[in-house]
Amino acid sequence: MAVKDYIRERFLPHIWCPGCGHGTVMSGLIRAVEQLGINKNDMVMVSGIGCSARISGYLDFHTLHTIHGRALAFATGVKLSKPDLNCIVPMGDGDALAIGGNHFIHAARRNIDITAIVMNNRIYGMTGGQFSPLSGIGVNATTAPYLNIDNAFDVVKLAKAAGATFVARTTTYHAKQITDLIMQAITHKGFSVVEILSQCPTHFGRKNKEGSAVDMMKRYREITTPIGSKKKKENPDLIERGIFVQENNPEYCIEYDKIIKKAMKG
């Protein structure tokens, strides 16, 4: 199927600003689903609120655009009630880890077979540029006019500690890696997290003097490196890309089916 067959043209034009990284993520996601050959009727996309959450409406899957931070809780109900469905949850950094932080760690703890994509632009874009729990110290934001003093979460470490069994990271500069990682995340049986650094030139870039969308993407090339690379040893400040966790642990829906068998025996 062609990429356009996954898009609801009726929904276009999209709401994203020129240069936004989210379109690159959506494109990578479509290619992953296409390459895996998943039937669109078997795909459910659940999202919360924010720029990133609008992905769900543009795609021709069963789509559930919910409330801020709660997408993973809705998705848990969808998945557990019908485990044959593939469940993908695209989230922004505030959606996933501020208001949705509790649902994020508990979905990871259960190891329920859902793919969470954290589109990390380090800012609340839709509301106009407030700092998020992934902004980090020193960031300029409308709610941090004297620069941010809040520490940032490390999504990879948090997901790993909470029990996610597939954890990966890449950026919108590395578009092919987006497709590759999302394919592996969907195929993985258990809770998978893919963090994708995604530029917000309108709010983050402008306030923090990171230049145009192209400049921001080039910066992703410079500040990241494959996991365990020589460059990382030389420069520990570099952000690693790749798969950090890939483990086979009992998956929640499969474990629940065992409970049903046990209960039915009486």
Partner: peptide
């Protein structure tokens, strides 16, 4: 919060 969200998801299936 999550409880009500989860049952809404399950109702849709």
């Amino acid at each position: 919060i999550a409880s009500l969200c989860a049952i809404i998801g399950a109702s849709l299936t």
